[in-house]
């Protein structure tokens, strides 16, 4: 509950402050957001699987973000930044979809 409120509050803060994304962060922020979403959906699934652990959630959240950003950074350095970004997004998207499917099966038995 509190994290949900926190999510909403963060969105509102972002809407009101309208911050400028720093230049160095711009290539990584979208990927980081996708990775964090993946972590969140994974957490929900873990809750329903009965294996949720908050420490695991926090660590996996941060690790997801860092690894995604690092992959994009590496891709930029290797000259395949846009392709690797696409790849990361695809992988994370697939994971999000599978997590959502698992959640759906848990909640709706369908």
């Amino acid at each position: 509950m509190i994290p949900v409120l926190g999510l909403i509050g963060g969105i509102l803060i972002g809407l009101f402050l309208q911050p400028e994304v720093p230049l160095w962060l711009q290539p990584y922020l979208p990927i980081a957001v996708i990775a964090a979403l993946d972590a969140v959906f994974g957490a929900v699934r873990a809750v329903l699987d009965g294996i949720f652990n908050d420490k695991v959630f926090v660590v996996s959240f941060l690790a997801n973000v860092v690894v995604a950003a690092f992959i994009v950074y590496l891709g930029d350095q290797l000259g395949v930044g846009s392709q690797l970004s696409t790849g990361v997004v695809v992988v994370l998207g697939v994971r999000i979809f599978s997590n959502v499917a698992s959640i759906r099966r848990h909640l709706f038995r369908a």
């Binding site: 926190g6 999510l7 963060g10």
Partner: peptide, 11 residues
């Protein structure tokens, strides 16, 4: 973390 995520999302 959720706040940060929401913030980053909106931004």
């Amino acid at each position: 973390l959720a706040i940060v995520l929401g913030f980053a999302l909106a931004t």
